[in-house]
């Protein structure tokens, strides 16, 4: 006999009513998990005057949105958000609860997990349903969420299972899960949530907020030309920009190039930057540390240019050019300009 299990929930992050792309990626992944479990995919959406945003969640496949609207939930502060989600989770007992590993998600999810006494696994790179035999404690679990994540600086991949009561909670970085196709004909049910935040949770005041659009959004880039430490200097990044401009690409960078101060952090690809999966990734002077590869190995076609034939980047490349990028990049630009 099996007891009825809860649904798959996604915390739908929004800013100014716009749903974060990572939340939609999680809805896409959540549908897959829910289909395996035979349950539904639902979202929790918090803010003020954001009912319109539910449509996007339905288009990506949520069957229900728990909508919590209140002036106490705008702007985002962690305690009122946590309180609302904790109450909802206690009431509905979702089987799985997914958060984007964004700055908001990473301060919110641990508070929720702590209050629910739930396990929480950060920065999962893959999720699937499987059984788990806990040999140490001699217990077996059916249909658990396998929470797969890199650990120890990306040197190992661990599969983690939450063995306590549901929800099974994880965070996932933006760009890691594949975004499904929206369908504008999909509709769903809105369940309005009564929001009552106790006074002692409304103590933090946001006095000032400065937020600028990112200088580049690599998550949606189709082609990325990325430069690493081998580029040599800030001035020389001009070459990388020239190639990108010529072929209609965005510019990425390795952590080494960002740390050297040659390019802004918004451009960083890898474990501590963004995870990209463009159709073409051209790595110039990037040695290809495990952390960098974690952020680009899923790209459609990878072209690596490096003067060191032993550079690890070649192990994930489809095309490898051993040579000096100062020589190779101008040749690429020329070849493209004189095409056909």
């Amino acid at each position: 006999m099996t007891s009825k299990i809860g649904n798959v929930w996604v915390f739908a992050e929004q800013e100014g009513g716009k749903i974060a792309s990572v939340s939609l990626e999680l809805v896409s992944k959540g549908r897959e998990l829910a289909a395996t479990l035979g349950v539904k995919t639902e979202a929790v959406l918090l803010g003020n005057n954001i009912e319109k945003s539910t449509a996007t969640l339905f288009h990506y496949g949520c069957s229900k949105v728990y909508l919590a609207e209140s002036p106490d939930l705008e702007p985002f502060t962690v305690l009122p958000f946590a309180d609302t989600i904790i109450k909802l989770a206690k009431q509905h007992r979702p089987n799985i609860l997914l958060f984007g590993a964004t700055p908001k998600g990473r301060e919110l999810a641990p508070r929720v997990a702590s209050a629910l006494l739930a396990g929480l696994t950060a920065d999962c790179t893959n999720l699937r349903i499987d059984d788990f035999d806990d040999k140490i404690n001699g217990k077996s679990y059916k249909n658990k969420l396998m929470q797969i994540r890199p650990a120890f600086g990306g040197n190992i991949i661990a599969t983690i299972v939450n063995t306590w009561e549901d929800p099974q909670m994880v965070t996932v970085r933006p760009g890691v899960m594949r975004l499904g196709e929206p369908d504008a004909s999909r509709k769903g049910e809105i369940e309005k949530v009564k929001v009552e935040i106790p006074a002692h949770l409304k103590v933090l005041k946001v006095l000032d907020k400065v937020q600028k659009e990112k200088s580049v959004d690599l998550l949606s880039s189709q082609i990325v030309v990325a430069g690493g430490y081998g580029v040599g200097s800030k001035e020389n990044f001009r070459l990388v920009y020239d190639l990108a401009r010529t072929i209609g690409a965005d510019v990425g960078a390795s952590r080494a190039a960002v740390d050297a101060g040659w390019i802004d952090h918004d451009h960083q690809v890898g474990q501590t930057g963004v995870t990209v999966r463009p159709k073409l990734y051209i790595a110039c002077g990037i040695s290809g540390s495990i952390q960098h590869r974690a952020g680009m190995a899923e790209s459609g076609i990878i072209v690596a240019v490096n003067s060191d034939p032993g550079a690890p980047i070649f192990s994930v490349a489809h095309y490898g050019i051993v040579g000096d990028l100062n020589d190779v990049i101008p040749k690429m630009i020329k070849a493209y300009k004189t095409k056909g």
């Binding site: 396990g119 190992i156 661990a158 599969t159 299972v161 306590w164």
Partner: peptide, 9 residues
């Protein structure tokens, strides 16, 4: 609550 199921290099 979280248990490590397995680890791979």
């Amino acid at each position: 609550p979280t248990k490590v199921k397995n680890i791979e290099s």
